[in-house]
């Protein structure tokens, strides 16, 4: 095993997957360092799950290479499976088995010896907060518990690398927060975590993120790094009674590059860092908009995400023209 392979838990080079004419994953390359929480962001159908399924050995790549734990996924998918844990957005458990039976089943499938299984079982019950629910049928568990049990079953064999495909879908905010604490703990214990999500607040908790759009990698780096696209382009957040009218007027201003709606607020990206937020607000008021609040804000990952998509789409139009 080379030094590079030990430093990087996952190495992906020009990974491509086609379904007929459709290119789900297009020439994607990235590395995930050992012990890192690596977030894979993108909208539905962007190619996140397809990538993760290729890395888990569930789907053959059309071209390109990927090594997981130093093993070539394409050539040796079964060896990869011993070293990884995988949990999908469906929290796949046996509905008709109890919590305890699910743990024992997956432990058995991973070939855990009786003593180790007992120890891991205690760990999982504890971690997932399922003490006292050992004999509850999986189908009777609420979302958060199901999710944590599914995670527990995926890490029974203490995999070095963990793949989580939208692990927090359909789960309440408190359970989501709890779940992320578990992810942090695993990462601290040295487990490499590759997680896909479209919750951008979750992405902030990742060490590094990759933005995938239309099958292509659009941006990559730490959350702070990817926000650098807004260097010299301040973002002004405006709360006004007529947000849609405000957007239209803002778009017409030469200082404004573009706008987007964030809940009830409007984010305007300015071309010039010298222009102040108050100046923008004054100009809106002059045109009859009731501005309730205005401030320059730090870019969120959501701003980055929308910006990246805009530019990717613009580039696509450019090449098409």
């Amino acid at each position: 095993m080379s030094a590079a392979a030990t430093a990087n838990a996952i190495e992906v080079r020009q990974l491509t997957r086609r379904f007929g004419q459709f290119v789900a994953v297009d020439d994607v390359s990235f590395d995930v360092r050992t012990g890192e929480i690596f977030g894979f962001l993108g909208s539905n159908g962007a190619g996140k799950s397809t990538t993760i399924r290729m890395l888990c050995g569930l789907l053959q790549p059309t071209s390109g290479t990927a090594t997981v734990g130093g093993i070539d996924v394409r050539r040796n998918p079964e060896s990869v499976k011993v070293r990884i844990g995988y949990m999908s957005q469906r929290f796949s458990l046996y509905e008709l088995l109890t919590v305890d039976q699910n743990i024992r089943f997956f432990g058995g499938i991973y070939g855990l010896a009786e003593a180790r299984l007992a120890e891991r079982r205690r760990f999982v019950i504890d971690m997932a907060g399922l003490a006292g629910r050992e004999t509850t049928l999986a189908r009777d568990l609420a979302g958060g518990w199901r999710q944590r049990l599914a995670l527990g079953c995926a890490i029974l064999h203490e995999p070095a690398i963990l793949f989580l495909d939208e692990p927090t879908g359909g789960v309440d905010p408190i359970s989501r927060r709890q779940f992320w604490r578990l992810i942090d703990a695993l990462s601290q214990a040295g487990v490499t975590v590759l997680v896909t999500t479209h919750y951008l607040d979750e992405a902030e908790r990742c060490h590094r993120v990759a933005l995938i759009h239309a099958g292509r990698l659009a941006a990559m780096g730490t959350p702070t790094e990817v926000k650098q696209v807004f260097a010299g382009r301040p973002i002004v957040e405006i709360r006004a009674d007529q947000a849609v009218d405000a957007m239209r007027l803002l778009e017409a201003m030469p200082a404004v590059e573009k706008t987007s709606l964030f809940g009830t607020a409007v984010h305007a990206v300015l071309r010039d860092p010298a222009v102040s937020a108050d100046a923008v607000a004054d100009r809106l008021r002059a045109q009859g908009i009731q501005v309730e609040a205005v401030a320059t804000v730090a870019p969120s990952l959501e701003d980055v995400f929308l910006d990246v998509i805009d530019r990717a789409n613009a580039a696509a139009r450019g090449t098409a023209a």
Binding site: L58, V82, Y86, S88, S92, I109, C153
Partner: peptide, 13 residues
């Protein structure tokens, strides 16, 4: 349908 087959497919089974 349950998704458990996929889960089994990522194990060494």
């Amino acid at each position: 349908e349950l998704g458990t087959l996929e889960q089994l497919n990522v194990t060494p089974l």
